[in-house]
Amino acid sequence: MCTGIVENARVSGNGKGPNGWFPLDQASVSYDHPDHARAERAVIIDLLSETAGPEYRIAVELTPQSARDLVRAILASLSRGEGDGGGARNESVQ
């Protein structure tokens, strides 16, 4: 919170924590001083379940370059899976 930089998004999916899988409904993405990563600054991502309690959290602290690489990988997988039209291949993979 030294930076105050946080972006939140509503998400739909599941995450796996120490007690198994649970539904996720919020992603919180901060740019701040990490608590664990060996870096002066990091992108801190918390995938949360607002209803299940604070311990239901998937947390990562990524170096800024790692975060960029992750974004590229996510976008690349979406592009390959859904193409520019988005969602066109969803049915065919069932």
Partner: peptide, 16 residues
């Protein structure tokens, strides 16, 4: 709320 300090800190962080 209450929980592990870093989990509560994450909630605080998400709330700004």
């Amino acid at each position: 709320g209450h929980g592990a300090p870093e989990d509560i800190a994450a909630k605080a962080r998400a709330a700004g």
